[in-house]
Simulated assay, not measured.
Amino acid sequence: MPSSAPENRAMPAFTPNVPACTAEMITLATDDRGGDLNGMSHAGTYLVLTNKSGQACTLLGLPSVSMKDAKGLVLPVKRQAPVGMHPGPVVVPLRLEPGASARASLRWVSGDVYDNGRCVDAARVEVRMGNQVLATGMTGHLCGESGQPVAFEQSPLTRNT
């Protein structure tokens, strides 16, 4: 007798028949939108990923981001888990059509507001795409608690409008 329980199928990692975006297909830029994310000892920028290829591709909804200083050294920064996504986050991939852009916000504490805090200065941001890396210049003064990686918030990618 057939089971009445629903079939348990794993969700595909990417949109069927649409390949994952590669670094050759995507450009990366930052856009502070005139200080849109700045205020109350906070600052930030948007990451803008644009599909420059002639075919649709998919991006991870919450790509891995790292930052480097002016000497090219990796900074001790870490993305905070989004609120309400524990142990998550679980974010679906984003399909990006040719010529279309997606964006994610990065926001951090920019003032030395912590007792015995520390601050680092970012000059470059990198987005990992599998074993490939996209990089672009940025300016960021990030502050956090001493003895821990400096935290930043990152939103999932959304279509850029």
Rank of each mutant, 00 (worst) to 15 (best):
residue 1 M to G: 14
residue 2 P to E: 11
residue 4 S to W: 13
residue 4 S to Y: 13
residue 6 P to D: 09
residue 6 P to H: 06
residue 7 E to V: 15
residue 7 E to P: 04
residue 8 N to I: 15
residue 8 N to P: 03
residue 9 R to G: 00
residue 9 R to D: 04
residue 9 R to I: 09
residue 10 A to Y: 09
residue 10 A to H: 10
residue 11 M to W: 11
residue 13 A to W: 10
residue 13 A to D: 14
residue 16 P to R: 08
residue 16 P to D: 07
residue 17 N to E: 15
residue 17 N to G: 10
residue 18 V to Y: 04
residue 18 V to P: 05
residue 18 V to C: 04
residue 18 V to E: 07
residue 19 P to L: 08
residue 19 P to H: 09
residue 19 P to Q: 09
residue 20 A to T: 13
residue 21 C to I: 07
residue 21 C to A: 08
residue 25 M to N: 09
residue 29 A to C: 03
residue 34 G to R: 06
residue 37 L to G: 04
residue 40 M to E: 11
residue 44 G to H: 06
residue 44 G to N: 02
residue 44 G to S: 04
residue 48 V to T: 01
residue 50 T to E: 11
residue 51 N to A: 06
residue 51 N to T: 05
residue 51 N to Y: 05
residue 52 K to H: 06
residue 53 S to N: 03
residue 55 Q to G: 09
residue 56 A to V: 07
residue 60 L to G: 05
residue 61 G to F: 03
residue 62 L to G: 01
residue 68 K to W: 02
residue 68 K to T: 09
residue 71 K to E: 15
residue 75 L to F: 01
residue 79 R to I: 03
residue 80 Q to N: 10
residue 81 A to T: 13
residue 82 P to F: 04
residue 85 M to C: 10
residue 86 H to T: 14
residue 87 P to C: 09
residue 90 V to I: 15
residue 92 V to K: 15
residue 92 V to I: 13
residue 95 R to Y: 07
residue 95 R to P: 10
residue 97 E to N: 12
residue 100 A to L: 05
residue 102 A to D: 04
residue 104 A to N: 01
residue 104 A to D: 00
residue 106 L to T: 02
residue 107 R to S: 15
residue 108 W to H: 02
residue 108 W to N: 02
residue 112 D to C: 06
residue 113 V to E: 11
residue 114 Y to Q: 11
residue 115 D to S: 12
residue 116 N to V: 06
residue 119 C to R: 10
residue 121 D to Y: 11
residue 122 A to R: 01
residue 128 R to P: 00
residue 129 M to D: 00
residue 129 M to N: 06
residue 129 M to G: 00
residue 130 G to K: 12
residue 131 N to S: 12
residue 135 A to I: 01
residue 135 A to K: 08
residue 136 T to K: 06
residue 136 T to F: 05
residue 136 T to Q: 05
residue 139 T to Y: 08
residue 140 G to P: 00
residue 142 L to M: 15
residue 142 L to T: 02
residue 144 G to T: 04
residue 145 E to I: 12
residue 145 E to S: 13
residue 150 V to W: 03
residue 153 E to S: 13
residue 155 S to Q: 00
residue 157 L to C: 01
residue 159 R to Q: 12
residue 159 R to S: 12
residue 160 N to W: 15
residue 161 T to H: 15
